[in-house]
Amino acid sequence: MSAGSPNTTLSLRSRRLALAPWLFLTPAILMFVIYVIAPIFQSIWVSFYEWDGLGDKVWVGFANYIELVDDDRFYTSLKNNFIWLVLYMLAVPAGLFIALFLNQKVPGMRLYKSLFFFPFVISQVVVGLVFSWFYDPSNGIIALIFAIWDGSPPAILADERFVTYGIIAAGLWPQVAYCMILYLTGLNNVSPDQIEAGWLDGAKGWRMLWYVVLPQLRPATFIAVVVTVIGALRSFDLISIMTQGGPYGSSNVLAYYMFETALSEYGYRMGYGAAIAVVLFLIMMVYIMVFLRRMYVQEKEGG
């Protein structure tokens, strides 16, 4: 190399420069293709078959999707997914207000912050168990509260009217904590001079929050909304722990319904499960596209 002309050295170096990123990217791309991209296409492919996971696959074309259109359980799940999506959004403002409240310099603040953050650290399984105990109509805390007024407590997890809301309430507990953390880090980056400037111009309270603080928190808000949407759509563990979709399927959501039809004790209809997965994927795709587009635009602007 030392003997080479400056010209070849340069081209070699530039070639290396072009190659290096790909070298580093290869393992990640490979993993991503094997574990994310390929299964997506496999699922789409399986959704056109009737298959119990053991015998031969039988090509049925769109039959699984046609069945889906006529399936009451599917609509229940879709409706519940929508309720999840709307109510889960409460985690964003709730997280913001807790973050604002905790963003003070008081002795022992770290302890309070960790207490609020605690539900995010513990497993969803534990959250689900704890809330099912709260809701237990014979010994739960809700039952005890009702007992004060001699009322008979609702069996929240056994009543089709309340069950989805009961599970969402359990899910909001850790989700609020998650949003709070996002906002707390965001609040660290709010510039004090702008607050001071706003202060001098007479902004106070709500106006200060809306016009001065919130615009600076936009990145945090964006991430909080995205993780909450994804969290709502893939809600699975809480349902599995608390109700298994019951009573009679009334708390099902698409993610759990897919699992139930494809992989649970009474399921093993791989094609039908895959069809549900594809529908869920398409719904998620809307949000993923928005997210990706925004990332792309930001990257471009950021240079």
Binding site: E160, G246, Y248, G249, E260, E265, G267, Y268, R269
Partner: peptide, 21 residues
């Protein structure tokens, strides 16, 4: 749920539960 095929059993038992409520 052992005599009926799995998918029928699941739907049937959900129906029984719903009927009881």
């Amino acid at each position: 749920d052992r005599d009926a095929p799995a998918q029928m059993a699941k739907a049937g038992m959900e129906g029984f539960q719903e009927f009881m409520i």
